[in-house]
């Protein structure tokens, strides 16, 4: 398939909107120090100050600038979300895909392993990793990917099972095409939308799980992330502060995940030439 993904992505409205939003977010994350007059960890002395000229989004419970935290939080949340989702998607495509293709004992082994892994609530590996490994961004990404992949692998496998039996694949097999050919020519393109959906879901869950980790207190407390901001803000919902402290990271998160979903939406068109208009 010779498709210029990029050109098609640019053609669709959703693709453009998603691209612009993602670029904007990445730009904001990269340029955080330039865009914010404050350091996210600095104690400004003004506690719970509402939004104003001094602090565009007000300050939090210890007098840190919420705007600065929002910008710097974008870095962590984007890195953790994308990193973990990418890693998990790769893993799930590899394991779910091969399990679906090869079938037999191999398939059964992985599916039962997935069952076993799925029922372990994420808190337990999180506590174990937090206890025995020194927390860093890489460890967090790896942990989240490890939590995410089993579920995704099952979705991929189910899709492969269904694809395997469809007409084009069956036809190719009758013509004596090797599995490699079928994989590259038929399965991977057909798998596209599912992988994209899986990735978008992965980003979502990774970001949420990261917030959960901060609830348990695992990680480096000095690293600002949107999840961490929300967890802190949740303790003060009896005051008005949630309007400028809880809402911005929540909406930013929703915007980010929305942007990724838009991209996924646009890519789906690219992967399906038949549906292109």
């Amino acid at each position: 398939m010779h498709v210029d993904y990029w050109a098609h992505l640019k053609q669709s409205n959703a693709g453009r909107a998603g691209l612009i939003l993602v670029c904007l977010l990445v730009g904001v994350a990269v340029l955080a120090p330039v865009l914010s007059p404050w350091n996210p960890g600095a104690y400004t002395g003004a506690i719970f100050s509402p939004p104003g000229r001094e602090h565009w989004l007000g300050t939090n419970d210890v007098g840190q600038d919420v705007w600065a935290q929002l910008l710097f939080g974008a870095r962590t949340s984007l890195a953790v979300g994308c990193g973990a989702a990418l890693l998990a998607t790769l893993l799930s495509a590899l394991i779910g895909g091969t399990a679906g293709l090869l079938g037999g004992l191999y398939d059964r082994f992985w599916m039962r392993a997935v069952d076993a892994l799925l029922v372990i609530p994420p808190v337990i590996p999180a506590i174990l990793v937090g206890a025995y490994l020194r927390p860093s961004l890489a460890v967090t990404v790896a942990l989240l990917a490890a939590i995410l992949w089993p579920g995704e692998a099952r979705v991929v496998r189910a899709q492969i099972l269904s694809l395997k039996e469809r007409a084009p694949v069956a036809a190719a097999r009758t013509f004596g095409a090797g599995w490699g050919h079928i994989l590259v020519r038929h399965l991977i393109p057909e798998l596209g939308p599912v992988l994209v959906a899986v990735f978008v879901q992965g980003v979502r869950r990774a970001v949420f799980l990261e917030a959960g980790l901060s609830f348990l207190g695992i990680g480096d407390p000095a690293v600002v992330s949107w999840g961490r901001m929300m967890q802190h803000a949740l303790r003060f919902t009896y005051l008005d502060v949630w309007k400028w402290w809880l809402l911005p990271p929540g909406l930013a998160l929703s915007l980010t995940l929305g942007a990724f979903a838009l991209l996924g939406f646009a890519l789906e068109t690219v992967f399906h030439p038949r549906l292109r208009r």
Binding site: I127, G130, R134, S214, G217, I218
Partner: peptide, 9 residues
Amino acid sequence: NLRGLEAKT
């Protein structure tokens, strides 16, 4: 160096 841990750990 700060290190966050689950309470019982």
